[in-house]
Amino acid sequence: MIRVVLPHHLRTLARVGAEVELPVEGAVTPRSILDALESAYPMLRGTMRDHATQERRSLVRFFVCGQDVSHESPDMTLPAAIGAGAEPFFVMGAIAGG
């Protein structure tokens, strides 16, 4: 199972705790994780990436194993620790505003 840590506002929207666990089929990439996340929690569609273009929303960031992968390809293969559930995939709101 993949572990995903959501920011506070998406937790309250999806009514989940700090971390959710998801099965992800095939290659573990940012895209496949977000696809699985949105499939399990449809209210999250459009909150992290654009409905139509699938582009990341500009104030959303993705971190894995201490690295910011927000600007990497959504099809990059993520470290094995993510696929194994040893490390979570972090979705974060960029620091901006109050």
Binding site: L13, G46, T47, V60
Partner: peptide, 8 residues
């Protein structure tokens, strides 16, 4: 709405 997470 949210500048970060869009429209609900």
């Amino acid at each position: 709405t949210s500048d970060w997470f869009g429209q609900q």
